[in-house]
């Protein structure tokens, strides 16, 4: 009798379409699924089946979808969560993120605006706003938002500074001086030897044809680094680009000698073998 009852329960269970789908999902995930997120999405789906009017659950699943890079599903869940009464500012932030990531910039701007109405000093939200405005070609507004980020973020990253300079140059593609000022600000905040910023400074000095300053910047790298061979080569290459062949020749001599000074194993690395070839090619150019 008990066995029969259990069989009937089991039969009923499989007759429920929703649950059958969920069961199939489980099996599928076990067979093909990779990663913990898929499992968590499924668990959240089961919770939603249990409690379909709970906006919190839709938000949570939406965020899981977002992390899983299923942006459409994420947005659907966020919208559903909002329709069920979720007024949390974080929901607007997530919607802004997803819209931004799916290139729906106007919608993203509306979402982040709703967030900032509630919390106008959140640097993360201001940064997203700046990024959205940048995509909408609203460069001045974007710069204003980003300035707030730079002034108020405790732990800035080199990437933040570089992104800010990209906006500066998008607003005015000749405004290298402001971009370099921003780089200097970053170096002051993050440490004067932060390499990605020093490299970006060099790039801007070259692009803005500030030749002597660019050469000084090459010299900074030559002084700063133990191994100088790559920097001598890069400086020589630039000297040739600006048609200062004699200086390039001398700089290439330093590059070659620096390689000779390396331990044997470094000399035999692919990067150094390639560098030697590049030096040879440049030497030929200086002799032309």
């Amino acid at each position: 009798m008990l066995v029969k009852l259990q069989f009937l329960n089991f039969f009923n269970f499989f007759c429920n379409r929703k649950l059958l789908v969920a069961f199939c999902l489980i099996v599928t995930i076990q067979m093909f699924g990779h990663g913990d997120l898929s499992e968590r999405i499924l668990l959240k789906t089961i919770e939603i089946i249990e409690d379909p009017e709970n906006y919190k659950l839709y938000y949570e699943r939406g965020f899981l979808y977002q992390q899983h890079i299923d942006y459409n599903e994420a947005l659907e869940d966020y919208i559903k969560s909002e329709s069920l009464g979720n007024t949390d500012k974080v929901l607007h932030y997530r919607m802004a993120e997803v819209n931004y990531l799916t290139n729906a910039y106007s919608n993203a701007l509306v979402n982040i605006g709703a967030y900032l109405k509630v919390d106008s000093i959140d640097v993360k939200a201001k940064k997203l706003e700046a990024q959205i405005l940048f995509k909408l070609n609203e460069y001045e507004k974007s710069l204003k938002s980003y300035q707030y980020v730079l002034q108020n973020t405790i732990d800035l990253r080199p990437e933040d500074i570089i992104e800010y300079t990209h906006i500066i140059l998008s607003e005015n593609n000749k405004n290298y001086n402001s971009a370099i000022v921003a780089i200097e600000f970053g170096l002051q905040k993050l440490g004067s030897n932060t390499i990605s910023l020093q490299l970006k400074k060099l790039e801007y000095l070259k692009e803005s044809e500030q030749v002597e300053k660019a050469l000084q910047q090459f010299n900074y790298f030559i002084i700063q680094f133990k191994r100088k061979e790559f920097w001598f080569y890069k400086k020589a290459k630039y000297l040739i680009e600006i048609n200062r062949k004699k200086e390039a020749r001398i700089t290439l001599k330093f590059a070659t000698r620096s390689i000779e000074e390396l331990d044997t194993r470094f000399k035999n690395m692919e990067s150094i073998k390639k560098l030697k070839e590049q030096i040879k090619n440049l030497e030929n150019k200086t002799n032309q």
Partner: peptide, 14 residues
């Protein structure tokens, strides 16, 4: 019924 079944699935999944 849904509740019990969902729990079953959850258990199975776990």
């Amino acid at each position: 019924m849904i509740k019990i079944s969902a729990q079953l699935i959850l258990m199975l999944f776990t």
